[in-house]
């Protein structure tokens, strides 16, 4: 079992994506945050993979897909 505490070490970006982009109370805000538009984010995932993975330690990068 691996635990991770947000206070202890940096939270994984992918766990933040799960929670912050698809969750949270939605109110009718008046300005659209274009960068966080969900469809856009989905389209951009491939680019995000590249930029995120490049900064991760080698150990985590070994063998990605199942």
């Amino acid at each position: 079992m691996n635990g991770s505490t947000p206070a202890g070490r940096e939270v994984a970006l992918v766990d933040l994506l799960d929670r912050l982009l698809a969750n949270g109370v939605v109110v009718a805000a008046e300005v659209t945050l274009s960068v966080a538009d969900v469809d856009l984010v989905r389209i951009s995932l491939r680019a995000l993979v590249t930029s995120v993975r490049a900064r991760e330690p080698l150990e985590a990068r070994r063998e990605g897909a199942a």
Partner: peptide, 9 residues
């Protein structure tokens, strides 16, 4: 928490 990017005038 509110959804990321909730901005009012």
């Amino acid at each position: 928490p509110l959804r990321l990017g909730t901005v009012y005038r």
